[in-house]
Write a protein that binds this DNA or RNA. Structure first.
Lengths: 143, 143
DNA sequence: ATAAGTGTAACAAGGATAGTTACAGAACGT
DNA sequence: ACGTTCTGTAACTATCCTTGTTACACTTAT
């Protein structure tokens, strides 16, 4: 099943940034994302571990950002909710008696790291503030 | 479950390149990759649709490359076996009555395209020949 | 004719993601 | 003190994706 946590995370953080005056309830976020409040709370838990949000329980509880939107990088968001691997390596260890099988893993592993770096570099060029600006304008990401 | 088709594809193509004199059987490839021959044949089917390999049925059948390794780009391989999306968009359409929900999809869609492009650009800098060289040397992908 | 292959369908197994309900505990108002 | 409104989290289910496996029709060379 496709992992849409990064998309939900950006959505949720955008909502929080626009309601920076107070705490936002998971139910309110869930309505906008069109999912269950528990799914949102699980996501917020990851974002909290990454230091991006803080929540309060109880009456008048809810969640808010810990930083200004221009200080939240999309790379931080990506790392908070993703395993960060564009492609996966072999499930089973290749045949070590085969010259290719013996060496292909390390080659692919380094290639994997390089491709993942390319993703992170590009994500790192955006902040949450950029997303908010685009959402406010109802426009799209410029290429 | 993690998708390791790209890794298997690179592995298989490397094997084919090293046995360029004849046709290689799926069972032989499966042994090196350490999986079932049918898994390999399914993979070869995708690679065939991408024009990278050709197979022959029957006695003395098997598969071989259609191009020289230096003419096979890893981007071609990636496209042959992947849907090419680093992250997924919302499963459910966000709430269109919410200003964020109404606009976030197109913003994320364009961001997705840009991140995917970054992956493709980087993959495009390698050919199968580069992989073969690295495997032969038993070394790793230089950064 | 026989043996050795591919192509492909059908099904099972395993794992990841998301959806749902339920409930304990925290915080605030009265 | 008590009830209300939240979060945090466990437990369970549903669904989908990937892989593994068996089976078999069809193709090709000897």
């Amino acid at each position: 099943m496709a992992n849409s946590q990064f998309a939900m995370a950006v959505h949720v953080l955008t909502m929080l940034a626009r309601n920076c005056d107070g705490r936002v309830k998971s139910g309110y976020l869930a309505k906008s994302v069109n999912t269950n409040a528990v799914v949102i709370r699980r996501l917020l838990c990851d974002l909290h571990e990454a230091g991006l949000v803080v929540s309060r329980t109880g009456y008048s509880g809810g969640t808010c950002l810990t930083k200004d939107p221009e200080e939240i990088n999309l790379l931080d968001v990506y790392r908070a909710v993703s395993h960060g691997e564009v492609f996966s390596l072999h499930r089973q260890k290749p045949d070590q008696d085969c010259p290719v099988g013996r060496n292909i893993e390390s080659v692919l592993c380094n290639l994997q790291k390089e491709i993942d770096s390319a993703v992170e570099e590009r994500l790192g060029t955006y902040t949450l503030d950029d997303i908010i600006t685009l959402v406010n304008k109802g426009r799209e990401v410029p290429v």
